[in-house]
């Protein structure tokens, strides 16, 4: 198959509960891949395994030809995988700009000594700081966050907070972006904007997107491939049309008559 991003035989248990059960899938470079499934199906556990927050019990996760399962989250970030969280994990007392600057962390070189001696505009740390702030400014422009730039994130409305989190992940310049329910809690207008932004991120920035999403309209319109899981197992994988037509998915989403 392809060797961009593959998950093979992934299993993760919590006590006696099998959250993910021998899951396999593969994503092509540059595609949007959506994961759907009822609550408790193991979607977020899967994301936590990929981003290194949980260590899988068995199975392999390969990214661009390298094993990444069992690595620490910061090492996985350095491999070029960024993520957002279902229940916002923002730095609430920092401004939007500062939140996004954390996304630049792995691209910056300022160490403790540079930091302590940042006495003037031309010091190493200050020059690097300005350079990366300019890059972050582009992301702020892209996501229309100018008015939130110097506002502590905790003071922003929910929809904007979600955007800041998206922007923060983008600032990392990832090859693979994991979005955990990006449209949850958004108004339909905000969801519409988000739809186009995700398309832009894929097409103009060339970022591959792995997404958990409950809004079926959005999943159907945006995805290249869809994976449906339940009880940690694969129900079906295929194009949006194939998955939507699958009896198990219809049963799970529309109910039996």
């Amino acid at each position: 198959m392809n060797d961009f991003f593959t998950v093979t035989g992934l299993t993760r248990t919590f006590g006696g509960v099998v959250a993910i059960d021998a899951l396999d899938f593969a994503q092509k470079k540059g595609s949007i891949f959506s994961i759907i499934g009822p609550n408790g199906a193991g979607k977020t556990t899967l994301f936590n395994c990929i981003s290194g927050i949980y260590r899988p019990d068995s199975g392999e996760i390969c990214f661009q030809g390298r094993r990444i399962d069992g690595l620490k989250p910061d090492a996985i970030a350095r491999h070029g995988i960024a993520r957002t969280f279902q229940n916002l994990e923002l730095f609430f007392r920092m401004t939007t700009m500062e939140n996004l600057m954390l996304g630049r962390h792995i691209h910056m070189r300022t160490n403790i000594w540079h930091g302590l001696t940042m006495f003037h505009k031309n010091s190493t740390a200050a020059r690097e700081e300005a350079e990366h702030r300019e890059k972050v400014e582009h992301i702020i422009d892209l996501l229309d966050l100018q008015s939130a730039r110097d506002v502590p994130v905790g003071a922003l409305p929910y929809g904007r907070q979600k955007l800041v989190e998206l922007g923060r992940a983008l600032a990392l310049e990832p090859s693979l972006l994991l979005l955990d329910e990006p449209s949850a809690g958004m108004t339909s207008d905000e969801r519409q904007d988000l739809f186009f932004w995700i398309k832009d991120i894929q097409q103009e920035l060339g970022v591959s997107i792995l997404m958990i999403e409950h809004n079926m309209q959005m999943v159907m319109d945006i995805s290249d491939r869809v994976l449906a899981i339940d009880f940690g197992k694969k129900l079906v994988e295929g194009t949006p049309e194939e998955v939507a037509a699958h009896p198990e998915v219809i049963k799970a989403y529309l109910g039996e008559d």
Binding site: A77, F91, F92, L102
Partner: peptide, 11 residues
């Protein structure tokens, strides 16, 4: 503020 988020950003 959030050690989990910091970690997934490469800290």
């Amino acid at each position: 503020e959030s050690d989990i988020a910091a970690e997934t950003l490469g800290v």
